[in-house]
């Protein structure tokens, strides 16, 4: 283990970790928005929206995220979408994780007992009121842990944007290997930093989940 080298390069890795964190936060935020819209569409009263929601999920989950990313970044300009690598990474991966989050959210909503919505409707609440006041608060509690699984996958998934040269943890490791020929040290370093990010996020999710547990 070349400690001297590690001490020399680690500040660059910390910078790269910060980019990975930004990518993670932004893709997860976009994913949550896409997931909420997707779940709403999949559970809609309108057949067209249900179809669009289902199509979104099956197209995204049925193709590699890397292909989606390449399509957006390299193929985009051909149809007039000009994005820099970071933007393409956020949008591509956000839309990607959104499909998985769609299914997570939909699953949580439909696993709330049907009798809950019925009891609310019986009291005279509208469909929307029953959803907001009774079904959603229970669904939110059910979806925190599975969304945590999606988020965990997404943090690791940001490594894909190395392929379009975003200078994040994975790309940085590869770059320094090129000049130092020390792949063991470099990959160890970025692996540890990924682990730290994932560990902290996991703690956050567990805390959130324990706060909202049903009595």
């Amino acid at each position: 283990m070349d400690w001297e080298l590690i001490l020399k390069v680690y500040p660059y890795f910390l910078e790269a970790a910060w980019v990975t964190i930004q990518l993670s936060v932004l893709t997860v935020a976009l994913g949550l928005v896409c997931g909420a819209l997707g779940a709403a569409a999949r559970l809609s009263r309108f057949a067209l929206l249900r179809f669009l929601g289902a199509a979104y999920v099956s197209v995204i989950r049925g193709t590699p995220a890397l292909i989606q990313l390449f399509l957006l970044y390299f193929g985009g300009p051909q149809i007039g979408i000009q994005l820099d690598a970071f933007e393409a990474g956020v949008i591509g991966l956000g839309i990607n994780i959104g499909a998985y989050m769609t299914e997570t959210m939909r699953g949580a909503i439909i696993s709330v007992d049907r009798g809950q919505g019925e009891a609310a409707r019986t009291l005279g609440l509208s469909q929307f009121q029953a959803f907001r006041k009774v079904v959603l608060p229970q669904a939110l509690r059910l979806m925190i842990r599975p969304l945590g699984v999606n988020i965990n996958a997404q943090i690791k998934g940001t490594a894909l944007v190395a392929a379009i040269s975003v200078v994040e943890l994975t790309y940085t490791a590869q770059r320094y290997i090129g000049s130092t020929y020390k792949p063991f040290e470099m990959f160890m370093l970025s692996g540890l930093l990924y682990m730290a990010i994932i560990y902290a996020t996991g703690k956050g999710i567990t805390y959130l989940d324990s706060r909202v547990r049903l009595q």
């Binding site: 007992d113 009798g115 809950q116 019925e118 009891a119 609310a120 409707r121 019986t122 009291l123 005279g124 609440l125 509208s126 469909q127 009774v134 608060p137 229970q138 509690r141 049903l214 009595q215």
Partner: peptide
């Protein structure tokens, strides 16, 4: 119809076999 039925339901109380209390 939604409006009408929501107003109607305010006049009709219902009690279920499994209570369906709101757990949250």
């Amino acid at each position: 119809y939604e409006k009408h039925i929501n107003a109607m339901r305010q006049h009709v109380g219902m009690v279920f076999q499994h209570f369906n209390l709101f757990p949250h």
